[in-house]
Design a protein around this nucleic acid. Structure first.
Lengths: 229, 229
DNA sequence: CGCCTATTTGAAAACCGTCAAAGTATGTGG
DNA sequence: CCACATACTTTGACGGTTTTCAAATAGGCG
């Protein structure tokens, strides 16, 4: 992957909705603070417990953010892609990263040092408001997933996860069964059993490493109401 | 509960850490935008699905924020008390409240209209940064709880909940078994069974409507490691 | 083709939820 | 002050969902 010229960092930042309110001068000021970093497949971007250092915007690639329970079970908090911010919780609290982040594909990231970002935000409240907006959305998601995990069965949780992913990525979801299980908070075997039924009911289609949604409406019914009888 | 004078609203706002960076002039500007509202026990402050209207700071009292799963099971997202903000997710995203909020005790709240707050934040980036900070903390909590719900057993989840509450409120926790169960994502019966064992092991003490932590260290061991054998 | 990883199925057991019933504190009205 | 209503707590038994352990099948890549 070729190195980017400084001018390109401006473009990368501009393409993120967080910085869309900035003019060209402000963008290049920020770009001067930014560092490009590249990661290969499966490389870690940060580890749970690391000290906070970089605020990141993903330029290209996909990143998996996850946590391990005390039992060692992996829980996937989110996948992030182009234009999304990464590692923000640690930065704004000045505490260690609460989760790990790993590149799923070749990934190019633009990083800004904690101090530089904070000082920039203090001078650009529109950007701060945009970040508040994104954080609010992530908090909303997290609360919905909490309620789901606590109150729904695996079938309904899986349906909800597939819908959420579909809203972001379309009808073809590039995830293994293991990854989907780790997002739904279940095991791969249970996830497979449930999804096999969905396949038999023509609700999804199954390809190695992928899930293709055939009938989003039925998925929605499943995720919202109990099958009842 | 007596009505407050306008001057008092300044004091209320000042006591919240979110507005601690403001000087007296700025505080009274904000106080002029603020409306005092009072709620009696069990009164709803907002409902899941309501349109976003108020950004709230709690002056006195305690508020329960919760969501119902499709099965009707209640999940308690958080309890908030004096000085904490409430309803912020809906405000910053301009979407319906994603949960309901109910006064647990007599509660006095200072509310600021969405538009007024946003315009104030655009002129006071320090406050915006503070809010980012609080949102970051809440997101961190939510992610930890997600990972716990997905990967830990009820005993460990309960231990974790009790520790989290204890960090905020001290060793005496004013919650019923039902409320604790609703925070841990389990049923009251299971919560009671687990807590009965904790009581027999002298880790907690039991009073009607309260839980008293006797041995936080053992709780920590429980929450972090599996009992193993 | 052979290896590695992903997917699938089966059987048994653990954990937890559900249903039922009884016991115990708190407050209220007579 | 007692009797009653109400809400919270507790215990038992049962069953269902989900995890765990084990093993087999299948797809992709060198």
């Amino acid at each position: 992957m070729a190195k980017l010229q400084p001018a390109d960092k401006t473009q990368i930042l501009k393409s993120s909705s967080i910085f869309s309110s900035l003019n060209d001068d402000e963008l290049s000021e920020l770009a001067n603070l930014a560092t490009e970093r590249n990661f290969t497949v499966n490389e870690f971007i940060f580890w749970d417990g690391d000290g906070p250092e970089w605020f990141n915007i993903i330029d290209q690639g996909q990143v998996k953010v996850f946590k391990h329970s005390s039992q060692g079970k992996e829980f996937i908090i989110a996948f992030f892609g182009t234009g999304e911010m990464l590692g923000e919780v640690a930065i704004f609290e000045d505490k260690p990263y609460p989760a790990s982040a790993q590149a799923v594909t070749e990934t190019r990231i633009v990083g800004i040092k904690r101090i530089d970002l904070l000082s920039f935000l203090a001078r650009h409240p529109q950007v701060a408001l945009k970040i508040i907006n994104v954080l609010g959305g992530r908090l909303r998601d997290a609360h919905r997933r909490l309620s789901d995990l606590a109150g729904e069965r695996v079938e309904q949780r899986l349906a909800g996860i597939l819908l959420m992913l579909s809203a972001k990525l379309g009808l073809t979801l590039p995830f293994t069964r293991q990854e989907i299980a780790d997002m739904a908070g279940t095991t791969i075997e249970t996830a497979i059993r449930v999804m096999s039924q969905l396949r038999q009911r023509k609700i999804i289609r199954s390809v190695r490493g992928k899930v293709i949604i055939l009938d989003a409406e039925k998925l929605r019914l499943l995720s919202e109401g109990p099958p009842q009888v």
